[in-house]
Simulated assay, not measured.
Amino acid sequence: MTTPAPQPALRADARRNYERLVSAAREVFAARGIDVPMDDIARHAGVGSATLYRRFPTREALLQAVHRDQIDALCSRAQELLAAPSPDDGLATWLRELARQGSTSRSLATALMIALRDEGSDVSWCREAMYAAAAALLDRAQQAGTVRADVAAGQVLKLVNAVAFVTEGEPDGEQQADALLAIVMDGLRPR
């Protein structure tokens, strides 16, 4: 699994600007979605546009920084669930947690969609990490015979991301996501 390249140590003022930009992006994305003009994020952070683009040359790079902790936590959780007594339950639990994260964060589902679609994007580390996490859980369930052998990790991630995307921001989004994921899990079972 590839992780993002380590960033060189930043001066204190550059570090503060980085943190302000990430915090501002998180707030603005949550309030207005990810299509908000990048200059609005810079303004919300109290920095110039040049500072934003120097640190985050693309929207995808900014999304990566905003969601890094969530993605790392999801990957760690997948590792934990590899020890679940039932491979099927471990996979279903992780998919539910992934969908919940995506449906409660207005921009995470979109960030994951970008990462899953574009191998060359600025969030390719996310793509590789999420594929590895999903593949490990899926392989375990397939080896146990509880999930169809003809299903690939990318397909499962796209299905769950679609569930997260359509339930994002819904008042009963968690319940809708759980119901849709039950259908997905039924479809993954061998016939």
Results as ranks from 00 to 15, higher is better:
134 A>H: 05
150 D>A: 15
181 L>Q: 07
55 R>M: 03
86 S>L: 07
44 H>R: 15
33 G>C: 12
108 L>C: 08
31 A>Q: 09
120 G>C: 12
168 E>Q: 15
112 L>R: 05
153 A>W: 07
72 D>T: 13
29 F>C: 06
166 V>T: 07
85 P>S: 14
167 T>G: 04
42 A>S: 10
144 A>I: 05
154 G>C: 11
82 L>A: 11
65 A>P: 01
79 Q>V: 14
72 D>C: 07
147 V>W: 03
76 S>R: 12
14 A>G: 09
28 V>K: 07
1 M>Y: 11
77 R>G: 03
49 S>W: 01
121 S>W: 05
76 S>L: 13
16 R>L: 14
105 S>A: 15
26 R>C: 10
176 Q>Y: 11
143 Q>P: 02
98 L>S: 13
185 M>C: 14
168 E>M: 12
136 A>K: 02
72 D>R: 09
117 R>M: 08
88 D>T: 10
47 V>P: 00
68 R>P: 00
162 A>P: 00
113 M>C: 12
67 H>T: 10
110 T>C: 08
127 R>A: 02
16 R>F: 06
3 T>Q: 07
108 L>Y: 00
35 D>S: 12
127 R>K: 07
177 A>R: 03
94 W>Q: 11
16 R>T: 12
141 A>R: 04
21 L>E: 00
180 L>M: 13
42 A>I: 04
169 G>W: 06
11 R>N: 07
